[in-house]
Design a protein around this nucleic acid. Sequence first.
DNA 1: ACAGAATATGCCGGATCGGCAATATTGCTG
DNA 2: CAGCAATATTGCCGATCCGGCATATTCTGT
Lengths: 209, 209
Amino acid sequence: MVGGHAGRGGLRERKKQRTREALSLAAIRLAVERGWAAVTVEDIAAAADVSVRTFRNYFSGKAEAVAARHLDRMRRIADELRVRPGDEPLWEALVSSVEAQFAPDEDLDAVPAPDPAQVDGVRVMLTEPALQGELARAHALAQDELAAAIAERTGTDPARDLYPALVAAAAGSAVAVAIEHCLRAEAPTPLGPVLRDALEQLRAGLPVP
Amino acid sequence: MVGGHAGRGGLRERKKQRTREALSLAAIRLAVERGWAAVTVEDIAAAADVSVRTFRNYFSGKAEAVAARHLDRMRRIADELRVRPGDEPLWEALVSSVEAQFAPDEDLDAVPAPDPAQVDGVRVMLTEPALQGELARAHALAQDELAAAIAERTGTDPARDLYPALVAAAAGSAVAVAIEHCLRAEAPTPLGPVLRDALEQLRAGLPVP
DNA sequence: ACAGAATATGCCGGATCGGCAATATTGCTG
DNA sequence: CAGCAATATTGCCGATCCGGCATATTCTGT
């Protein structure tokens, strides 16, 4: 062993992660400011200082690169749930895990500061079919991991019980509905309260309003 | 006026619909029996007796063609809900509408007879990322229409209330979870009871089992 | 330090994708 | 019923995507 490195995992893995993030970020930025069709894989690769071929080692296309950020964030919900105290009721732990990922800011996954021009760019970008598909897929993938974490925590069997998959799907739906709601509103709306409301309605069995 | 035609809509529209169905069906059949990568757009177009260019007027790619069948079926849930008697409680009408689309047979959307070889082909096909994305997108699109139908029926405002989108998402989740469950099981499992169970759990607020 | 493994890159051929213009089919109207 | 307008089908083409292969470069564990 040469010596204790900083972050966990080797230098190799960290660099890989940084490249992945740089590519995803570049893809989002370019797509938002130039429009979806006007940005090629070559542009993204150049913006992250890697070859086009390397980009394609990380992502299968523009869409996957853009969706990666959303995917990573959704994944973190499952990670967060795993490290919660085990005696906490499931739903409570789940709500905390979800809110932890959307607490500070960022209405979708691109802009740190809710600049109206950029938000509008995101709206336009989200009309692209290829991107919608990839985002929906990312959502589904993350839900599968969340379902596994829920099954693990509750001692249910994902192969026999619908329960873990259903709870994961419910949580995912709450996030999706809340994000779309806030994104559709013209006045910038904080995500947190909307998300909490959605989760609460689901837990109450969706009573008619 | 020339005369009352048979089905609603002109001959033109019906022919279009038949072409669309033929293409989607051909795409599914070829992909299941040959494997995803081994079928080109040209093959599909040839199987439906249209030019490649025409195929691309209907669908943006193989994935969309295959997903079209699922999309159409999910759309019919919303259509069914609209023609239900208005005095029926929403959830009851919704459950009926969903079950009506999955009542007779077909575990996913390809095979009329649950041939084990074909079911396995479907399983393999569903591992394809591009197809997963398109299916997820179809799911999301259908949910939007369902949400509109629910809002219409309950008098809620999709722009202000989370309710319609949440209920639509819950119904969609139940369908998705039930389908995946039945597809994962090695013994052929009828979808109906599983679907009913999933919907019931959601309505009960997902109690821990 | 060295052997082995994983990654980055260039190159290439097949397939995809969408715009354009010509042609054919359908629906309407006089 | 005959012509006209609208829409669908088709072929063509260049840009792009996509993944396999071979090679060079960079990290890891002993």
